[in-house]
Amino acid sequence: MRNTRTSLIRRTALAVAALTSALVLTACGGGSDSASSSHHTGDSASASAPASAPSSAGTHNAQDVAFVQGMIPHHQQALEMARLAADRASSAQVKELAARIEKAQDPEIRTMSGWLKSWNEKVPSSGSSMGSMPGMDHSSGSGMSGMSGMMDPKDMTMLEKSSGKHFDTMFLTMMVQHHEGAVKMAGTEKAQGAYGPATSMAEDIIKGQTAEITEMKKLLGKA
């Protein structure tokens, strides 16, 4: 009787131990799966994060550099022309227009120069050779070194030596051509540039200078 009871107790103990082991193994396996699932979920979230994030605001391409390096000397010549109007123009409207051009383009030169410095690119000076700058259309044969809308030295000398109504007419005619060149350059930047602030500036140039072209043509009686 005692042996039967002892045997029963042993069998019960073994059954309990086996059940406990199974529960422990199941719990461990579930924890591992959960951890693995959590780990993979984390990887998936991490992997998808860059895709959902906006592209780098600082990204720029070769077109951005060419646009800025070309537009700086383009603006510098416009400022040179505009500053002549103060004591040479006879029309108050021409003087006011020239002042607006200077007010708009001088800060843009400083902004674009800052971009080039941050990109470790060459910043053109007011005495830079236009032929050495990127983005020049050497095949066009018009303007300074073929840059779209730029005046050559002879044109600038003629403008500097003129005054009164003759200056007004020459200034407006030259500035229309100059603005048309800037709008063309800005259009290329808007279509091909990658740097957000540069493409935004290009859009502003297109809007602002297109409006000024219309204004100048009206002053010339060409509207």
Rank of each mutant, 00 (worst) to 15 (best):
Y195V: 00
P73C: 04
K122A: 13
K122Y: 11
K117W: 02
A92M: 12
K161A: 15
M136S: 11
H60C: 03
A78V: 09
S139F: 02
Y195K: 00
M185D: 03
A78G: 15
H138M: 07
A66R: 03
S140A: 07
P73N: 03
K95P: 06
D155L: 01
D168C: 09
L116W: 10
V183A: 08
S90K: 14
A186V: 09
L172Y: 08
E180K: 12
A98W: 13
I101L: 14
Q63F: 04
M174G: 12
S142T: 12
V183I: 15
L84T: 07
G149L: 06
M175G: 01
G149N: 00
E189F: 00
A86C: 01
Q69G: 14
P197K: 00
G114N: 06
T59S: 12
E160A: 15
D152Y: 05
S125F: 00
M81L: 10
S126E: 12
Q192W: 00
I109Q: 08
T169M: 05
M151Q: 13
A186D: 09
K103H: 13
I101M: 15
G193R: 06
G143M: 04
S91K: 09
Q77T: 07
E108P: 09
L116I: 04
K165A: 14
A66K: 04
I101A: 12
D106F: 08
S142A: 09
S90N: 15
P197A: 05
L116E: 06
M144L: 13
H179D: 07
S140M: 01
M130S: 09
L84I: 04
M71I: 04
V94F: 14
G187R: 03
S126N: 10
W115N: 07
M147C: 05
I101V: 15
T169G: 00
G127C: 02
Q105G: 11
L159K: 07
L172R: 01
